[in-house]
């Protein structure tokens, strides 16, 4: 029995190196025990030295899939991947067989990871932790992804936020980017990030871009599942928006049409004469006149 521990950081490379060695040495899946760090070694598992890594030929589509599946939360992901890789030796066409249950399961895991990465790109919310006037501004975020997606997603943030330093802290892993160089360290508990005044503006935007006449809570929840809400600043506004929406829509429908403000006539005349001037006229605060 072989016993491999795949580290948390660099799991993709570690798994690939190990799998390459096993496959080159023709070790079948049932002789390998794949483990995450920190789990107790299996009873009676006596460890053999791993075979040296070898050269093997595998479909590019498998490699792309494996590079995502290794970040899944499922403890058995490494074994599943190797099991399928073993089957691919004699039947390389299996990688394109959408009817195969084993592949279907791996594809489902791949999809879970992709979705988790996508949601991470969308829902990480930075707060400024440094001086806003500094040449390189610095930001930090606390995030709780469903899968181990910090490492494969960090490069996205590096490509996007090239002129600032940032860190994304999760319970499982921390990604830090300083001067464009990304590094990873162990996970941390939720830190106390300083208040950020722009959060207030963002919530104001979120509240006002919502149209109360089109309330569709289930559509929102399917794309922005509730598990993410605790780390989204704008989510605090949701309950009240949902509660007041029917009433607001009804109020709009019931309100009697008002008379146009005084400036409307003047501006229409000017427009007709072809010399419209600035619309910023002082009547902006006057109360609407009700049509009797």
């Amino acid at each position: 029995m072989y016993h491999v521990v795949i580290p948390k950081i660099g799991a993709a490379t570690a798994w690939r190196t190990a799998a390459r060695g096993f496959l080159a040495a023709q070790i079948p899946p049932h002789e390998i025990c794949w483990q995450e760090p920190g789990t107790a070694p299996e009873l009676f598992a006596h460890t053999q030295a791993l075979p040296p890594t070898g050269d093997i030929k595998v479909s590019r589509r498998f490699v792309a899939m494996a590079n995502s599946v290794v970040w899944h939360r499922d403890r058995d992901r490494f074994a599943h991947l190797y099991g399928f890789l073993w089957r691919l030796r004699d039947a390389p066409h299996l990688i394109g067989d959408h009817g195969d249950p084993h592949l279907a399961r791996l594809r489902r895991m791949e999809k879970n990871v992709h979705r988790c990465q996508h949601k991470m790109k969308a829902f990480v919310r930075f707060r400024e932790i440094g001086d806003p006037e500094a040449p390189r501004r610095s930001f930090a975020a606390w995030f709780e992804p469903t899968h181990h997606t910090v490492e494969p997603t960090a490069s996205f943030f590096a490509r996007r936020f090239g002129d600032m330093d940032w860190r994304i802290i999760t319970p499982d892993k921390t990604a830090i980017c300083v001067d464009g160089v990304v590094s990873f360290s162990a996970g941390q508990a939720r830190p106390d990030l300083p208040e950020d005044a722009h959060e207030d503006l963002w919530i104001a935007y979120f509240e006002n871009i919502f149209n109360p006449a089109r309330l569709k809570v289930s559509a929102m929840c399917s794309e922005m599942p509730k598990k993410y809400w605790k780390n989204l600043p704008e989510a605090v506004a949701i309950p009240n928006l949902v509660k007041t929406a029917p009433e607001r829509a009804e109020k709009m429908a019931r309100a009697a049409p008002t008379l146009p403000p005084l400036r409307a006539e003047r501006m229409k005349e000017r427009l007709a004469q072809g010399n419209a001037t600035d619309g910023a006229l002082p009547s902006q605060t006057s109360a609407p006149r009700q049509r009797k």
Partner: peptide, 23 residues
């Protein structure tokens, strides 16, 4: 903006950063 001289990226597919209660 990997060159460190600007801000932002665009990678083909868009990202929806939040959803309002109107879905």
């Amino acid at each position: 903006s990997r060159d460190g001289k600007g801000l932002g990226s665009n990678e083909g597919s868009g990202i929806c950063h939040a959803y309002a209660p109107d879905g």
